[in-house]
């Protein structure tokens, strides 16, 4: 699974805001230019980004394998025609290039995921998005991170309990609604307890923000991000 891994690569030392800027610039220009030449340049850049974050190409492709299936099917679907000539090569090529740029965008974002702990992303959100939305989004992401394993084990327990009582013999609707209802009611119980804890600990709109600072390495990378973003409109 694709996730943050502690390491000491170049990307790990960058400020999360810099890495977000690169991703946005890259995605903008990749979306704007699905041409062979542009994609060749962007492929080289993707290689650099992945190397800079210590991302393994093979493991990333495995992690995105279901997404890749759709990307691989698209040119085939696009090329096949119901009558002569049976296969439209121009349409398939256009779709193939379009699919390939999506793959590049996914690979670049994998570099962010591997090199950025959630607390850095949270700090970036709270320091970039102003006011109350930024505060709720930042703390909210930390809470999702905190509760994801808790709720995953809740759902697993519910499924195992159902299996033990021969729940697998029941209809699909019945099973989906039972899992959904038990999952939701447990989630609400947990949320209401969490809410008391947040209140008791003075949850505020204007807390001390998590520390975050640009270093010297960030500036050239930010320039790259701006160049990428500008190239989208050329």
């Amino acid at each position: 699974m694709l996730t943050y891994e502690p390491d000491d690569t170049f990307a790990h030392r960058l400020d999360p805001r810099t890495k977000l800027a690169v991703q946005i610039g890259f995605a903008a220009t990749a979306l704007a230019h699905p041409t062979p030449w542009a994609l060749l340049v962007l492929s080289a850049l993707t290689g650099l980004v992945m190397a800079g974050a210590g991302v393994s190409l093979r493991r990333t492709l495995v992690a995105y394998r279901f997404a890749l299936l759709v990307l691989a099917l698209a040119p085939v679907l696009s090329g096949v025609t119901l009558g002569a000539p049976w296969f439209d090569r121009a349409a398939a090529t256009a779709s193939g290039l379009a699919s390939y740029r999506v793959l590049l965008v996914l690979l670049v974002s994998a570099a962010y995921v591997r090199s950025t702990p959630v607390r850095d992303s949270r700090a970036a959100i709270q320091r970039t998005i102003p006011g109350k939305p930024g505060q709720l989004l930042g703390v909210g992401v930390a809470l999702v991170f905190r509760f994801l394993p808790v709720l995953r084990s809740d759902l697993r327990t519910i499924r195992e309990t159902m299996a033990a009582r021969l729940g697998t013999e029941r209809g699909a609707v019945d099973r989906a609604s039972t899992i959904g209802m038990l999952g939701l009611s447990r989630a609400f119980d947990r949320a209401d307890r969490l809410s008391l804890a947040l209140q008791a600990r003075c949850f505020a709109w204007n807390p001390t923000l998590p520390p975050l600072a640009f270093s010297r390495a960030d500036y050239p990378v930010l320039v790259v991000a701006v160049v990428l973003a500008c190239s989208a409109v050329i």
């Binding site: 607390r119 991170f145 905190r146 808790v150 947990r190 307890r193 804890a197 008791a200 600990r201």
Partner: peptide
């Protein structure tokens, strides 16, 4: 204030945070 079920009172995944 400390409530029952400490597991539901934490807001961060790590102790210090």
């Amino acid at each position: 204030m400390v409530f029952q079920h400490p597991r539901d009172q934490f807001v961060s995944a790590t102790v210090g945070a």
